[in-house]
């Protein structure tokens, strides 16, 4: 995984609440056995008509947001299916940060495994950033993961919380499995003890 670098750029406003993973990447694109190339179909049914033409008023089709690296979203972003194709599609499109008041658990975890930072902020802060994001190229939102801050264009700074371990992995581009493998002895001894206690399991 690539190391997460600080991001400063245009943010696409998506105020709709409960944006689900079916919206982020509809099921017809889950038929792949690869992780790559899903950005072309990110938000497919909101972004394109049935015959493939762009829907002009969808935010990522507007000139200002076509290269957005940040999404500011309504609450409960990423609810629904566990499909990791959702963060794969976001990342492949170029999204590195999502900002919202809340996320569905599985989606939230999946983001960290794919170099995406899901920032949680209180509603008042998200409202200000949403308004900022509405100003297109006239706005610039900055995310500093190390300092755990999001800054609006005018410099207003919002502090966010993030799990230390997740932050560490994201900043250093670490592979979870490699880290867990370092604890293989603990797993071995747990497994042996557990098997003795629960021979049926």
């Amino acid at each position: 995984m690539e190391k997460f670098e600080n991001v400063s750029g245009v943010a696409a406003p998506m105020p709709l609440v409960n944006i689900d993973t079916d919206m982020i990447i509809p099921k017809q694109f889950l038929k792949t056995i690869k992780r790559s190339g899903l950005g072309a179909n990110l938000f497919d049914e909101m972004r394109f008509t049935r015959d493939g033409a762009e829907i002009e008023d969808f935010v990522l089709n507007k000139p200002a947001y076509r290269k957005a690296e940040i999404i500011v979203a309504g609450e409960n972003f990423g609810c629904g299916s566990s499909r990791e194709h959702a963060p794969w599609a976001l990342r492949d499109f170029g999204i590195k940060v999502v900002i919202s008041t809340s996320y569905a658990d599985i989606f939230y975890n999946n983001c960290f495994k794919n170099g995406i930072l899901p920032v949680v902020l209180p509603k008042e802060a998200v409202d200000i950033l949403m308004e900022d994001a509405e100003r297109g190229e006239n706005a610039r939102i900055t995310i500093d993961l190390d300092g755990q801050t999001v800054s609006a264009t005018d410099g207003t700074e919002f502090k966010f919380e993030v799990d230390e371990f997740k932050k560490h992995c994201l900043m250093n581009g670490l592979d979870d499995i490699g880290l867990t493998m370092q604890k293989v002895k603990a797993i071995d001894s747990f497994e042996a003890e557990y098997a003795a206690k629960t021979p049926w399991a």
């Binding site: 992780r35 566990s82 499909r83 990791e84 963060p87 599985i106 975890n109 999946n110 495994k113 794919n114 799990d163 371990f165 979870d176 499995i177 867990t180 493998m181 293989v184 797993i187 497994e191």
Partner: peptide, 20 residues
């Protein structure tokens, strides 16, 4: 509970899941 594909790989390789 449900997990993402990276976690599927993690469980396949280690029989554990990183959780809080």
């Amino acid at each position: 509970h449900g997990i993402g594909t990276s976690e599927v790989e993690h469980v396949l390789a280690t029989q554990t899941l990183i959780q809080k």
